[in-house]
Structures are given as C-alpha cells and as structure tokens.
C-alpha cells in the first residue's frame, strides 16, 4: 500500500465474469483493461463460467462490483441464479451488480426487479461505466 492511499481511500475491486455458453470475451477484455486503467483491481473469471463459479469468485474475492457479461441471451436464466447464490452467502446487499450485453427492454425491468443495479448495452461508453461505479460503489 502506498503512502498516499494509506488513509481513507480504498481500492475498488471488480469481478468481470463471463457466464454460460458464450465465447465472446473481446468486450469483457476491453472492459477489464479500462477498469484497470481507471485504478480498479479487476478479477477476470475467464470464459464459460457457471453461476456457482461466479458466486464463488464474488464471495471469496470480496469484490465491490460484480460485472456479468452475457451475449448469449440467457440472462433471464443465469443472472437470477447468480443473485440467489450471492444472497445465500450473504454477499448480495453490499455489492454493485452490473450486467453488460444485449438485453431487451422487457427483460431489463425484470432484472432490475431481481436486484441488478444497472445494465449496460451496446453503445455504452467506458467513461459512463467507470463513473457509475465510482459513484455507486458500496460504502463499507
């Protein structure tokens, strides 16, 4: 820990997770790098993770932000499983849950109801996401 951040300011930790049968991780890579350059610590899950694995990573790494990237359209099945798992391990309330990918408007409302904090679709900018995280990262 450097002297400057010794008091007060803490490093925000983010999980960037790819779930399910979706092999497209270009976007996740770009996001992981952008978050790193913004000064965050990024844990990248790798491809084809099951919801259980994402929960395991989110709990053990004690991340502030759980970023779930899904381009397969299976968000309605996979995301709730992750949310339930986080609740099971008492790791839901103090965590920011973000979903990135192509999510139809009807589904967005439902995901939000289930506890997703924000959804970033195509065209969302890095700056938008980074400042959203800075603003909403949970107080601990």
């Amino acid at each position: 820990m450097s002297v400057e951040q010794e008091q007060g300011e803490r490093t925000i930790r983010c999980l960037v997770a790819k779930v399910g049968l979706d092999g497209h991780d270009r976007g996740a890579h770009v996001i992981a790098r952008a978050l790193r350059d913004a000064g965050f610590e990024v844990i990248y899950s790798g491809l084809h993770r099951s919801p259980d694995e994402v929960v395991q990573a989110a709990v053990q790494e004690d991340v502030d932000v759980v970023g779930i990237s899904i381009l397969s359209g299976a968000h309605n099945t996979l995301v709730p499983k992750i949310l339930d798992g986080l609740q099971e391990y008492d790791a839901f309330d103090d965590r920011l849950i973000l979903v990135g990918g192509i999510v139809p408007d009807d589904d967005k409302a439902e995901l939000r109801d289930r506890g997703v904090d924000e959804i970033f679709g195509p065209g969302a900018s890095m700056e938008e996401m980074i400042s959203y995280i800075r603003e909403h990262a949970p107080e601990r």
Binding site: R36, E53, E61
Partner: peptide, 22 residues
C-alpha cells in the same frame, strides 16, 4: 500497475479444477 494502481488479477482463470468448490 505503478501508474494507475489498477491491476488485472488473472490467476483465478486457472482454478478450473476447483470451480464452485467453496
């Protein structure tokens, strides 16, 4: 990174044999 202070921690990717084992 000594510049941004950020990091990508990738060791977890290799933990495939213990996936989901708390």
């Amino acid at each position: 990174s000594p510049y941004s202070g950020g990091a990508v921690l990738g060791d977890r990717i290799r933990m495939a044999s213990n996936a989901g084992d708390m």
